[in-house]
Design a protein around this nucleic acid. Sequence first.
DNA 1: CTCATGTGAGACACTGATGTCTCACTGCGA
DNA 2: TCGCAGTGAGACATCAGTGTCTCACATGAG
Lengths: 186, 186
Amino acid sequence: MPNRDDVLGAAQRMLNADPAASMAGIAEAVGISRATMHRHFDSREALLVELGTRSLDRWEQRLDEAGVEALAAEGDPVRLREALEVLVLAYVDDSDAFGFALTDHVILANAALEERTQVLADREAVLVAAAQEAGVLRRDLPLRWFGHVTYGLLVAAREAVRIGDIARRDAGQLVLSSLLAGVATR
Amino acid sequence: MPNRDDVLGAAQRMLNADPAASMAGIAEAVGISRATMHRHFDSREALLVELGTRSLDRWEQRLDEAGVEALAAEGDPVRLREALEVLVLAYVDDSDAFGFALTDHVILANAALEERTQVLADREAVLVAAAQEAGVLRRDLPLRWFGHVTYGLLVAAREAVRIGDIARRDAGQLVLSSLLAGVATR
DNA sequence: CTCATGTGAGACACTGATGTCTCACTGCGA
DNA sequence: TCGCAGTGAGACATCAGTGTCTCACATGAG
């Protein structure tokens, strides 16, 4: 019998394939009844908020693993650049599982999640600011722009993989390379 | 009394603000009754398809203005680069009005629109391929990747403007500069 | 064996949206 | 002035999804 985590995992996969999936659809994909679905999660919103929380947990974990604050304090260009690369590649991996959370309206409209998103964006901005200081990232771009560009490229990669224009295994390097160096020759 | 074009324009603005807007909501925003709304468009889908068609019309117009095929045949690096810049800036402008069409499920699921999208993407790819040949765009990136990256940056700019992280008037240059040169120093 | 717990099936009420239809009104042209 | 085309208001049937509830059933622990 699928436990709560199994349900969350299956729901995640289902919602990635079809972000508008109904509770009935998700329950069917999980292999349980609607009744049991509602025994796990009071409402569809509760389910989505929990999945949103999960994705933020992952983001936070990535920032922790990178040691954002320490790196920023240190200010070493080489290590900053390396950390940025590792972080972006991790995001690409994660977007595979959590991608739908990037665009789901219910999740984006949730005040608590939005607040926490802001906190994490702030942490990330610390790294970006340090990288700008250290000459790793361009200083002529707004601090907050970097996060948006990264997000946009994740969306692009997701779509490109879905359509079949690029291979999944190439997504990370394409995103990283395009993000840092652009698509024009130099 | 709003004519059909007024209705389309108002619907476009409404759907950009709230992509899930109902026919009733759109009608109210336009300032007409639901009945009149349905006299103009048989169904919500019909309305969305027409808006999708409009956005593809605009895209096609941009490609025409750029003179894609002639430029590609010519192969002059300077003019190719210039055309790419003009095109991307035009896309940023257009995404202001047509942005919602980039992500709306009803529009994306329409077979006729998808087919036409493919045709236009093919035309654009001609320009990209020529630019790669001429050494303007990187040859180590897949041909189809360029379109996706551009799309992703449009999404990013839209969101960044919405949140207030960047000014609308800066969006064009930020997208263009990040697209071509990336966000890292060189 | 017995019982408690968890489950599936399905009925139910409710909501919000869609699309159709009627009817009365208004404004404009003939 | 008459008549007509277009409109708004609103009723109506329909549909899909949500969330609640009941009841029968299975399974595993004691």
